[in-house]
Design a protein around this nucleic acid. Structure first.
Length: 385
DNA sequence: ACCTGGTCCCGGGCTCGGTTTT
DNA sequence: AAAACCGAGCCCGGGACCAGGT
């Protein structure tokens, strides 16, 4: 963000007397180009990437760290920077290989498997980084896409380093599957697998990303508030409280910050108060999932979740909740029921047993496991109506 | 035995957009 | 140039069936 933008935001926030200067800066789904407090990890990753600077590919690399430790933030920042490194028309690093003197190009491709689930989508995601032309979204076969990818790499003496983020979450593309898909171009592609743990039977290099320590999390929050909130909206004691409460999880810390700021703005105050912090901590579930897990779902599922949080399941059996939601939407109760069970299976919502009522199996209800206010705000900002 | 909750799976239809035919 | 066709993804609906409780 340039200085003009910063000034413009300050002015408009000042006119509206709002605590929030720039909501984007507070969002847990937005990554910084220069992650705070992750310097040593960046160095270790660059060590692992070393062969790239000679136009060669490193072996398989894993970047693993607990939830909210910034693995995704670090990888996306690093890949963006590497792609822009030479800043000219081609966004890749061009180097001259020692052997032969042919120019070789290395591409850095980040794939979020929360949003890329099929073979078709995977090839498309990789190709759209490498290819200068727009890549079709439909209308052609998967094999055709794979062949084009082959031509762009093998045919042009180019390499690609592909990051596979969230490989270990349910229902995403697993590492094995990705290797299968990359098999035809295995000679010019290597992978960086990113997640909470390494793939089964891992034999490559591993870079561990530790959870944030309390003072690092304080830095993360301070960094965000300095550009996202008006001056003095949050005092240092509150920052420390949030950091301590989040227990090393930057997602939880930022989700709570976002929630508190949104509540304060709704209350039209110029300072985030006790009640806003309390509300925020209650709204971000302990051991919950990243809000992006919910935001990556299809629109129909997001609508069901919106209805679920707005009618507040209130400890009622899934069946009743499903029929209530069905009444508000175009879906049948049966479909909503299936959605709810599927979402619970994925861990986006949690099933909570209820006391039995007479005969039959005991019912359960469902509760969100993601920060609900962040979800509501960001879906509303998106196109889910 | 009977009931209700929960799981699993698949067919069919729809949209999108590129390709081929008229 | 328009129309017909096709590959692929996505989505919904629903039914068969399994599990656990009285």
């Amino acid at each position: 963000m340039n200085i003009q933008d910063r000034i413009a935001r300050r002015r408009s926030a000042h006119r509206e007397r709002s605590v929030v200067v720039d909501r984007e800066q507070l969002s847990p789904v937005v990554h910084r180009p220069d992650p705070v407090g992750r310097g040593p990890v960046l160095e270790q990753l660059l060590d692992a990437f070393e062969p790239v600077f000679d136009g060669e590919l490193p072996g398989p690399i894993a970047a693993v760290g607990p939830a909210g430790s910034g693995t995704s933030a670090v990888i996306t920042a690093l890949f963006d920077a590497l792609n822009e490194r030479l800043g000219n028309s081609s966004r890749a690093i061009a180097t001259t290989t020692r052997t032969g003197g042919l120019e070789s190009v290395t591409w850095f491709v980040y794939v979020d498997t929360r949003r890329v689930e099929s073979a078709f989508a995977f090839y498309r995601a990789v190709l759209s980084v490498i290819s200068p032309d727009p890549v079709p979204e439909s209308g052609i076969g998967t094999a055709e896409l794979r062949d084009r990818l082959y031509e762009h790499l093998e045919g042009k003496n180019a390499n690609a380093l592909v990051a596979i983020d969230h490989h270990d979450e349910p229902e995403t593309l697993g590492y094995d599957r990705v290797c299968e898909l990359l098999e035809p171009i295995a000679d010019c592609v290597s992978t960086v697998v990113v997640g909470q743990r390494e793939p089964e039977g891992w034999a490559g290099t591993t870079v561990s990303v530790p959870a944030y320590r309390p003072h690092e999390l304080v830095d993360v929050i301070t960094d965000r508030t300095s550009s996202g909130l008006s001056a003095g909206a949050l005092d240092h004691e509150q920052v420390r409280e949030l950091a301590e409460w989040a227990d090393g999880n930057a997602h939880d810390a930022l989700a709570a910050l976002f929630t508190a700021a949104t509540c304060a703005k709704a209350d039209d105050t110029d300072h985030i108060g006790r009640e806003h912090i309390d509300r925020a901590m209650a709204d971000v579930p302990e051991n919950g999932v990243h809000v992006d897990r919910a935001l990556a779902l299809s629109t129909s599922r997001q609508r069901v979740l919106l209805d679920l949080v707005s009618l507040d399941a209130g400890r009622r059996p899934i069946r009743d909740v499903a029929s209530d939601i069905a009444d508000r939407s175009e879906l049948t109760a049966g479909t909503v029921k299936r959605f709810l069970y599927e979402l619970a299976d994925r861990g986006v919502i949690e099933r909570v047993p209820l006391p039995g009522s007479g005969s039959g199996r005991r019912p359960s209800t469902v509760e969100p496991r993601f920060p609900t206010l962040v979800f509501r705000t960001l879906t509303a900002a998106g196109s889910v109506s």
